[in-house]
Amino acid sequence: MHRLYRLIDEDPRFHALQRSRSRFAWSLVALVLTGYYSFVSVIAFAPALFARALYEGTTISIGLLAALAVLLLSIGLTGLYIVRANRVFDRLNRTIVDDARSRFEHR
């Protein structure tokens, strides 16, 4: 293993960052895929539900609203990830890497 990588690997903050980042990313993946596959499953197994009108007197169907919801969910979660990554993950990552670099040079 490269020594700089080993220095990073020895830092407990790296493990904490990596754990919280991956927990966050995978939760968002689960959210998107749940939303998406719910939408798809209705089309596959209960298409009649999506054909129904949203309320009495409109032609806008439940399916159209669901489609829009999945679309907005996808974009919204993308934004959420960026905000958290910019505010939290990047800063921590930079500190960890800078510390490892300075220890690397001082040894």
Partner: peptide
Amino acid sequence: GFDGLIYVIGGVAGWPIVLFL
């Protein structure tokens, strides 16, 4: 009709996956 939208939604839902992973 409606089935065309499957392509639309599938195309958009791929992007968060690309970003997160």
